[in-house]
Simulated scan of single mutants.
Amino acid sequence: MTHVYGIKSCGSVQKALRFLDARGITYTFHDFKTSPVSREKIEMWVQHSALSTLLNTKGTTYRTLDLKAKNLDDTNKIEWMSTHNLLIKRPVIEFNDTLVVGYDEAYYEGIFHS
Rank of each mutant, 00 (worst) to 15 (best):
I88E: 00
L17K: 01
K68Y: 14
I7S: 00
L86V: 06
L51P: 08
L51C: 13
Y107Q: 13
H30V: 11
S49L: 13
D97R: 15
L51R: 09
K33S: 10
D104H: 13
W45N: 03
K58V: 07
S35V: 13
S49C: 13
D104F: 02
F112N: 05
G24S: 06
T34K: 13
Y62E: 04
V13C: 11
M1H: 12
F29G: 01
F29Q: 01
M1T: 12
L65K: 09
R63S: 01
L54W: 01
L51W: 07
V92P: 00
L99K: 08
S38N: 10
E40M: 09
V37I: 15
L87S: 03
T75Q: 12
V100Q: 08
K70D: 04
L67D: 05
W45G: 02
I7L: 03
Q47G: 11
G102Q: 06
F32R: 03
R18N: 15
Y5E: 05
I42Y: 03
A69Y: 10
F29I: 05
S38L: 05
T98N: 15
G6L: 01
I111D: 12
T28I: 09
A69W: 11
N56H: 08
K68T: 13
T26H: 13
L99W: 06
T75E: 14
R90Q: 00
I88Y: 03
W45E: 05
I42H: 01
G11M: 08
S38G: 08
F32C: 03
F112L: 10
S114A: 15
L54H: 02
E105S: 00
L67Y: 07
E40Q: 13
T60F: 02
E40I: 11
G102K: 04
N96W: 14
C10M: 03
V100R: 07
R39I: 11
T61R: 09
R63I: 01
E43P: 02
R23L: 09
L20N: 02
